[in-house]
Amino acid sequence: MAEKEKVTIVVFSGELDKALASFNIATTAAGMGMDVTMFFTFWGLNVIKKNRGPLKSKGLMRKMLNWMNRGGSQRLPLSKFHMFGLGTWMMKKLMGEERMLSLEDSIAMAKRLGVKFIACTNSIGVMGLGEDAFIPEVDGFAGAATFLGEARKGTVNLFV
C-alpha cells in the first residue's frame, strides 16, 4: 500500500459526548489503516488529565481554576443534559447496557491501535499544570506548529 493517510483531530472540548465522538473516529480511522494524531487543547486537556490525585499548580487563580476545572476522563460532563451529574450517570449506564465502549476503554483502544496523543503546551502553561497532571498515554507536548505540520499532510482534519 502507498504511504498511510494521515488524520488529525483537535480535541478542544472537555465534554464526555464530544470526547467519545472524537475517539470513535480516531479508533475507526486507525482501524482503517490511517495514521492518527489527536491534539488536546484547552478544555480538551480535561480528557487526558489523570483521574486520581491532586493536580499541582501555582498561584491562587490557577489553583481555583484547576479546582473548578479538575477534569479526568471519569469526571467529564455531557454537553447537554448533564443535570448535575444525573444525566451523565444515566448516559453511562445506558451505554454500558448497550455494550458501548466507555471513554476509558476508548482511550486504551486508541492507544493499542497506535493513535498518537499530543497535549498543547500553550494551554498547559496558562493553566499552570505540569506534565505529571496527564495520563502516561500522552506521547508528547507540543504547540500549534506541530499540529499544522501534521494537518497539512492530513487528508482528514477535524476540530471537536
Binding site: N24, T27, T28, G31, M32, R99, M100, M109
Partner: peptide, 8 residues
C-alpha cells in the same frame, strides 16, 4: 456491538 466495534 455498535459502530465502531465491528470494524475494530
Amino acid at each position: 456491538l455498535y459502530c465502531p466495534m465491528p470494524i475494530i
